[in-house]
Amino acid sequence: MGAEAVDAWIREFARLIAANKDELTALDSAIGDGDHGTNMDRGLTAVVSMLDAEPQATPSALFKKVGMTLISKVGGASGPLYGTAFLRMAAAAGDEVDLAKVLRAALDGVIARGKAEPGDKTMVDALAPAVDALEAGAGLAAAAEAAAKGRDATIPLVARKGRASYLGERSAGHADPGATSVTLLLTAAATTLGDQN
């Protein structure tokens, strides 16, 4: 997989974020501070402009630019978390992108930055099962499905990290917005990269 494929993946992620902006914000209003959709859309819009203006030659360079752009544009907690994830993907991407490897690096980065564990009702709950699926040899469609299952499994959970944790028991009953946007990242990969992996 080359830079062109990664470029298509990120653009599809940006499109899905824009299309689901209101849903992400509604989820975040229920248990957070109601800005996840707006913030992610602002960041991914900047990413697409960057990709238009400065095409990157390698997947690694592209992941790095995406990470830096998200850190600079998103703010909140999502900026550092997604930014760190893409910077770690840049470091893990060699000449040939091994998606299981780069997404494992992304997951490790998110855990290191946010100090969340599985079951805390965060991005980790969708990303971890997707990475596990890829490492077990599943294709991207199955990995995206695993992420979606992980997202749905956050609904009954009580949040232990971020602003949602202030709600205690009241945070149960809603899907986590971060797990929802991570699922879009995997869905975008399945749509654009197919079975390249």
Partner: peptide
Amino acid sequence: AGEIFTSPVPD
């Protein structure tokens, strides 16, 4: 100054 109720960014 960040966005309303959103942390500023590292830059």
